[in-house]
């Protein structure tokens, strides 16, 4: 199991939980599992999210490996100038 932290305004769609546990070994499995467990998260996941893995931010990389001991944080999709 992987623990993933949701940002504040997403928690409404996950029964108010800050941390959600899902079965996943990479970024894509994590997103799929989240959307299945909490369908309210699906629109945001579809729009795009970033993933911070032990502090390193990944924007789209589905097959980024996730281990149970990693710190996994969901973030909005990053944009820049």
């Amino acid at each position: 199991m992987v623990r993933v932290k949701l940002w504040g305004s997403l928690r409404t769609f996950a029964d108010g939980e800050e941390w959600v546990e899902v079965e996943a070994s990479n970024f894509k499995e994590l997103l799929d599992a989240l959307a299945e467990k909490h369908p309210g998260l699906a629109p945001q996941i579809k729009r795009g999210v970033s993933l911070a893995l032990d502090g390193v931010i990944y924007r789209e990389a589905w097959f980024t490996k996730i281990e149970p001991e990693n710190e996994v944080i969901l973030m909005p999709y990053m944009v820049g100038g």
Partner: peptide, 8 residues
Amino acid sequence: SSYGPTFN
């Protein structure tokens, strides 16, 4: 960090 992750 204030936005979620722990800084490296």
